[in-house]
Design a protein around this nucleic acid. Sequence first.
DNA 1: CGGGTTTGACCCGCGC
DNA 2: GCGCGGGTCAAACCCG
Length: 491
Amino acid sequence: MDNPHHRQLTHPPIIKEMDFFSSNSSATHHNKNNINNQNKNHHQTITANGSPTRTTHHTVNTGLNLTCATSGLAKTQTGQNSQAELSALESQLRRLQEENRKLRTVLDQITKSYTQLQAQLFIALQKQKLPQNTEGKGMGSGQKNVEPAGACSKLEMGVNDASVCDEKTDQDVSVSRSNNAEVMSKTHDEPQLTKLNLGKQACPEASEDVLDRSSSQSWGSSKLEQQPKTSEHVAAADDRIPLRKARVSVRARSEAPLISDGCQWRKYGQKMAKGNPCPRAYYRCTMAAGCPVRKQVQRCAEDKTVLITTYEGNHNHPLPPAATAMANTTSAAAAMLMSGSTQSKEAQTNCAGYYSSIPYASMATLSASAPFPTITLDLTQSSKAMQLHNRHAAAFPLPLDASGGPHLVGHPLFFPHKLPHALLPLLQRQPPSMVETVSAAIASDPNFTAALAAAISSIIGVPRASDGNSNPDPIPCSPQLPQSCTTFSTN
DNA sequence: CGGGTTTGACCCGCGC
DNA sequence: GCGCGGGTCAAACCCG
């Protein structure tokens, strides 16, 4: 299932596309200027009928010079023919210029309508968001009281199902697709998160319902977890595109047969998937009874050194520190993905385009066409990402660590208020015991941490990096991030 | 002996 | 309705 999907998602051409988008906003601009210059060319040639001196006018000049030359020859040869030819060329030029002008007008109109629509959408979403913010404020204060100390615990308090995020913050996050960095930042502001947290704390039944619902929908075939569809559920499904739980797929190079991620898993099945000689293994989280989280592990058909781990669901129990980092990464990714699950395919495409404009976005790819909405964090691309990273050094001043390599932790792009804050100490100060558990994935990819951070950055908030320090206060434990639906570490 | 793995059977959704 | 493929179950088996 996931193989063709992953193939599609992480195929190099997509990365090329990312490169195109990410590295060449200036290039795009440049092209735009070229177009404008060409337009100007037509204007100049027609209105002034002179010979522009700029080389960018070469094309049109050539034509004019040729006509001049031929007109000179015409005097000695067939003058009438040349005259006719000249007039024909001139009329053709006029036609082209007219057509060009029309096209430009159309383009202007389209751009204008797009901008207007974008503004209207933004206003509408802001209106929708207002009551939520008010609600969130009250909840936020309440939530702080019950927040346990410790980053990990804080993270775990927010058992924020990606699906929950989807249901409650659809509009919020969808705004982030409008290439609006400012709005993007708002999607991760506290209110919605506190709401989510409260949903779990103050209304456990309700949130459990949501959790169970999403679980039963994604793993509906499970007899143990399957719940009869109430009319409410059906109605919910009818109101929107069928509610599907996001999947987060992590591609990492590892010779190990299994990437341990800090959680305890029990294998409950193995099956040969079509199109892949490697079997797919099914695991269920056994850290807590009834934990709905499952994962699938399969090697990539093309590159068997690549281990594809697909997570689905959210843990309903506290996670060990070792498990929180990737958990928050993937849950954030899932939340981001699910926030767009109700969008049109076009929106999904735009979303991809949006991400592709972000450094490291080559590692995060989306798929709305898959049976389940899936986001893939391709950690096998880390080296390329690092090159990309360096390429963007001019645009995004990057601090390098002592080794001279890119150091994403503490990087401007690596916003603590965006990222699971527990990630910072985890990434920066890995206890030796944990380091020892680092698996072949890391061994084969020393930039794993940076790649992971890059993936996170690409998902949750890089656009904000450009605006610098809009939110300098670090939230101790980014509660806005949905709680880890997954965990990922190595051993 | 308890917990995890293996593996064939079964269920379910989907496309034809 | 049928076949196919993905996902899950559960009995048998393995292992510390």
